[in-house]
Design a protein around this nucleic acid. Structure first.
Length: 562
RNA sequence: GCGCCCGUGGUCUAACGGAUAAGGCACGAGUCUUCUAAACUCGAAGAUGGGGGUUCGAUUCCCUCCGGGCGCGCCA
């Protein structure tokens, strides 16, 4: 018999109770069995129940019996040992060596109550002491942001959001590559555009940056300074045009990123690292460790000592530091102020991973303190036609173009939808299509649909469902399935963090929407029966909370109506 | 040549080392006098590129081959 007042028990607690009893049963039967943690996972097929454990497989060796027999014996023991399991579980069945369990409806109802109580804090993790530095998006300040930054920004921001939600102290930063020779190229290109305003025949540098974004900047200079620079010596105009162009383009990049919904803690200029002597201190650190040598007048990093293919030049024969030297300094800084450093880079940087991990080691940190996540290549399509992104031809598709065409929501969702290491085909037509082919709208529609139900419901009912829900009426399989899905949020979010797999969030959001739509068709919400109505409204509120959270982590809005 | 990523139904993708490999689109058949049909239900469709290995168990880890993409500068 159940006690008269039953305390609500959450799934994790029910499973812990089960695990403890199972552990007892195992030690009682197989004293010399290796002690392994009993883990539960959700089986792929719903027929196998809510959770399953493979504990019996680990015992086959000591027990010298088949996992099927072991599982069957353990199930019999477990229920004997812990009578409470009869209330917490509606089914405990050994199948093919697995032990499959199904939680009783009250446990799932308790999850819904729990979400209603926690509200938007549901699934948030406890404060972690680990400090994480996350760098992504970073581009040369020589042009507008393009698709690849769309992907790295979406991936990075989703990871950062999820890490923060799970309690990590995350610092997100952008490195401005303004220290190298490309700034000269920018200055010369901009200068040519400026001169062309007065003399259309003025030659454009062969290696210059094409595209239509420089002429307007040149026009600004002309508006301000008129012909002042025409007769100036190169030693004067080059620094000016380089800096002016750099500042304008970085400002533009900042605007684009903000518009995309990403907010950085730091925009680090490489030139500044250089000017403040921090490049030097990074190199000195490597040298002190004995990881550098000189050859032909250049300074090399012994990257091969740390598993890289070849040693890397740090300082050229002419004394100028390389791009990699900047990275040495920058990563040395990051490693000092964070426990873990993560770089999210584009596909052209994958040759860089070994170098950077080796660098972390050479600087005296663990190899694992630095991770590099490569976001693979993107192919842009418009329907069946591939969109050319050739920079040389001058028709670049910018991130702003994409936002203009499909909107922030669709762009953010599409860019994280696939596993980062999988090449992505981005179809602009599909992304802006408001149809059932578009997963963004499918998810948002779920949210809007719930909001719509609340508009039709009595205000007092919704309030009651939120504040004093009685959920015992939630017993329909569609209701249980939805509650079960909502309960996954903390686990899914933590998994996204642990595996650096932001795409799982988009799948989860689709799964919630799918379970909700099924529930919506199966169960009418605003019914006559009061208990049923309140319970279902409670489930709707909880669903809306979790769905909004999932969308928020991805950086997509949760509309009240569509 | 060396290195990295990818190879899953017609197509695009999923799958902490677990069970009969899961979804979307496309295709076929149904469901709106009731809370948004941008939704739902049912159906047909596959030997996870080939071969070996590790494991009680491999789409997943290791080796090798084939196919596709990318990177291999005292460029950034």
């Amino acid at each position: 018999m159940s006690p008269t007042t039953t305390e609500p028990v959450l799934p994790d607690d029910a499973l812990a109770t089960f695990a403890a009893a199972l552990q007892d049963a195992i030690t009682a039967r197989y004293a010399d069995a290796p002690r392994a943690e009993i883990a539960f996972e959700a089986p792929r097929r719903p027929e196998f129940g809510d959770f399953a454990t493979n504990a019996a497989f680990a015992l086959t060796r000591t027990a010298k019996r088949s996992p099927q027999d072991i599982a069957a014996a353990l199930v019999a023991d477990v229920v004997e040992r812990e009578p409470r399991l009869r209330d917490l579980f509606s089914d405990i069945t050994p199948t093919a060596g697995f032990i499959n369990v199904r939680l009783a409806a009250p446990v799932w109802q308790a999850v819904v109550a729990h979400i209603l109580q926690d509200g938007e804090h549901f699934g948030a993790g406890p404060q972690q002491s680990a400090r994480i530095s996350l760098e992504f998006g970073s581009a040369n300040p020589t042009g507008p942001l393009v698709v690849v930054q769309g992907r790295t920004c979406s991936v990075g921001a989703t990871l950062a959001n999820t890490m923060r939600y799970r309690g990590y102290d995350v610092f997100i930063e952008w490195i401005i590559n303004d220290a190298g020779g490309q700034l000269d190229t920018l200055g010369r290109s901009l200068y040519a555009r400026y001169r062309q305003l007065f003399d259309p025949a003025f030659p454009f540098p062969e290696e210059g940056y094409p595209g239509d974004y420089l002429p307007p900047i040149a026009q600004q200079i002309a508006d301000r300074d008129a012909q002042r620079w025409i007769d100036a010596p190169e030693s004067q105009w080059l620094p000016f045009f380089s800096k002016f162009g750099r500042d304008m383009l970085v400002a533009e990049q900042m605007r684009t990123v903000a518009r995309f919904g990403v907010h950085y803690d730091l925009w680090q200029s490489e030139k500044e690292l250089h000017d403040t002597g921090r490049i030097k201190s990074g190199l000195a650190r490597l040298k002190a460790g004995g990881h550098t040598y000189e050859q032909d007048g250049a300074v090399f990093f012994k990257a091969t000592d740390f598993g890289d293919d070849k040693d890397r030049v740090l300082v050229r024969r002419d004394g100028r530091p390389t791009y990699f030297a900047n990275d040495v300094a920058y990563h040395y800084e990051k490693l000092q102020r964070a426990d873990r450093v993560i770089d999210i880079l584009g596909p052209d940087h994958h040759g860089y991973i070994g170098r950077l991990k080796g660098l972390a080691e050479a600087l005296g940190f663990s190899r694992d303190s630095l991770d590099v996540l490569i976001a693979q290549q993107i192919t842009l399509m418009r329907g069946n036609e591939q969109v050319s992104m050739s920079k040389r031809a001058g028709h670049i598709v910018t991130l702003d173009d994409i936002i203009d065409e499909v909107g922030v929501d669709a762009a953010r969702f599409f860019f994280v939808m696939l596993s980062p290491e999988s090449p992505l085909t981005f179809d602009l037509e599909l992304a802006k299509e408001q149809s059932n082919e578009n997963p963004v709208y499918y998810v948002q529609y779920g949210h809007a649909r719930i909001a719509s139900v609340f508009k039709n419901a009595d205000f007092a009912d919704v309030e009651e469902a939120r504040m004093r829900p009685s959920l015992a009426a939630l017993t329909n399989p569609a209701e249980i399935a939805l509650a079960r899905r909502l309960a996954e949020l903390p686990r899914v979010a933590q998994n996204v963090v642990d595996q650096l797999a932001p795409h799982r969030l988009t799948r989860y959001a689709r799964d919630i929407a799918s379970d909700f739509h099924q529930f919506y068709h199966e169960c009418r919400i605003l019914v006559e029966d009061r208990d049923e109505r309140i319970a279902r409204l409670g489930l709707c509120i909880a669903t809306k909370t979790v769905l909004a959270r999932a969308l928020d982590l991805i950086g997509v809005s949760a509309p009240e109506s569509m």
